[in-house]
Amino acid sequence: MFYSIYTFLVEEAFFYVFSFFCIAIIFRLAYFTLHSLQNDPIVLKFFNLKYALRSLINWTIPFKARNMRLNPITFFVSYLFHICIILVPIFYSGHIFILEEYIDLPFEPPMLPDILSDVLTFLALVSGIFLLLRRIIYPPARYVSSSKDFGLLLLVLIPFLTGFLAVRGIGGDFLLFLHVLSAELLLLILPFTRIMHMFLGLFSRSYTGSEFGAIRHAKDW
């Protein structure tokens, strides 16, 4: 039975979940854009591409921003965490093989060597746990963290943990099933949670960058 549900999840469900995920994200981003047209015209009026990019770039260069230098470990681990959780799901060979079974890709998709995928997954877990511990130990983070914040982080980690174990043949089909289920669940709720910061953060950073650069003639990093 597992197997049939598993194939369902991997085949049809994934298609729907993923489409839903994309549409929901587009929808959310469109919502913010349209909302600002209506309710906060200042944002678009004062948006300035040059300074938005200036801000984004300076915040992407590792340890450029002063706060990164003040908190090198936290920022390093966060970078690592984000890199891992983005790269692995997309470029893990197993995922791509499955994809190729269903879709004829017109090109040779890039893949991570399995050993690298393994290492990155492991790092994702370690860095994720670090962030979890940071939330508990570092008073400012603890002060502002709610159970939701912990829950979300765990939710992000589960597919990685289950995937990591499943690849090692631990937990058998059940774990594999759990892996797919948790990943799809994550995709479903992601657009409605704080995890949207990966997209919305670009908006807020760009706007702040525009104001700091064009109006206030100051750096914002």
Partner: peptide, 30 residues
């Protein structure tokens, strides 16, 4: 305003802003 909604939805409750504020830096009270 959109900004308010945007900021509320974006903040990941990381506390990385703590050390920016002289009030926090003086009291070390979150």
């Amino acid at each position: 305003e959109t900004r308010l909604k945007l900021y509320t939805s974006t903040c990941i409750h990381c506390g990385l802003c703590a050390e920016a504020c002289h009030f926090y830096m003086s009291h070390k009270d979150p």
